[in-house]
Simulated assay, not measured.
Amino acid sequence: MSREIILYVATSLDGFIAKENDDLQWLEEAEVEGDAGYSDMYQSIDTIIMGKRTYDWVVEHTETFPYPDKKCYVFSTSLSGKNEHVEFVNEDVVTFSKKLREQEGSKIWMVGGADILDAFMKEQLIDEWIITITPHLLGSGIPLFKNNNPFQELKLINTTRYGQMVQMHYRVKKG
């Protein structure tokens, strides 16, 4: 049995996860009730995967590293080694993640960014989708999905309203 990879992400109604310059200010200002299911999702994982641009944004915009109790891998072409919170990985993200799935542990959260998600989409590596739609039309930016993804059938597990946001929770239908 392999570990599952989940995507927990917020997107504008028109499908953007950030503005062109990685700006997420619009998201931080959104009206939300509670934590939009974050605590429950966070308790279900023990490992985090993210790209270096996402990591840089997290480090720049948080006072303390938000995932100190999880194993965190950051994919980078410029950094290697470890720091107190993360291990930098210079391997192919798909190959590394497939190996990671076979190790003991609980779920893996693919935090971002868009290039890693696209690689995971092409290889159908996401098992669970938790997507929160925010009440914004950005018009342009970094899209949640890029083009030419394979067909996948999903099963709706739940929808939840958090203030002005709506969260959809899907699982990939298995064969």
Rank of each mutant, 00 (worst) to 15 (best):
V93N: 07
V86Q: 04
G51K: 01
E33S: 15
T62Y: 12
G112P: 05
E84D: 15
L125N: 02
K99D: 12
L137K: 08
K71W: 03
F75V: 03
N90V: 10
I142F: 06
I142C: 06
E87S: 13
M110A: 13
E60I: 08
C72T: 15
K122V: 10
S76N: 13
Q103I: 05
S78T: 15
T54W: 01
G81K: 10
S140H: 14
M110C: 15
E63Y: 11
S140D: 15
V32N: 06
L138P: 07
N90R: 14
V89S: 02
D46H: 01
F75E: 00
G81F: 10
I108P: 00
E87L: 02
I130A: 02
F120E: 03
I108D: 00
G112M: 05
L79C: 09
F75N: 04
K107W: 02
K107V: 00
I48C: 02
S39W: 02
T47D: 00
G113C: 02
Q43A: 13
M110N: 05
S76M: 12
K82E: 14
I49L: 14
C72R: 03
I142Y: 04
H61L: 09
D69Q: 14
I130T: 07
G105M: 00
T47R: 00
V94D: 05
I48P: 00
E87F: 01
F145P: 08
Y67L: 09
I126C: 08
Y55Q: 03
D35R: 07
I130G: 01
T77P: 09
D92V: 11
K99S: 15
I48V: 14
L79M: 13
T95M: 12
V58A: 09
T47L: 01
G37Y: 05
I45E: 03
L100T: 07
E123R: 07
V32M: 15
F120L: 10
G139D: 09
R53Q: 12
P135C: 10
I133N: 07
N83D: 15
K107R: 15
T132N: 08
K70Y: 00
I48A: 01
P68N: 11
A30W: 02
W109P: 00
K82M: 12
H136F: 15
G37V: 01
I131C: 09
S78G: 11
Q124H: 11
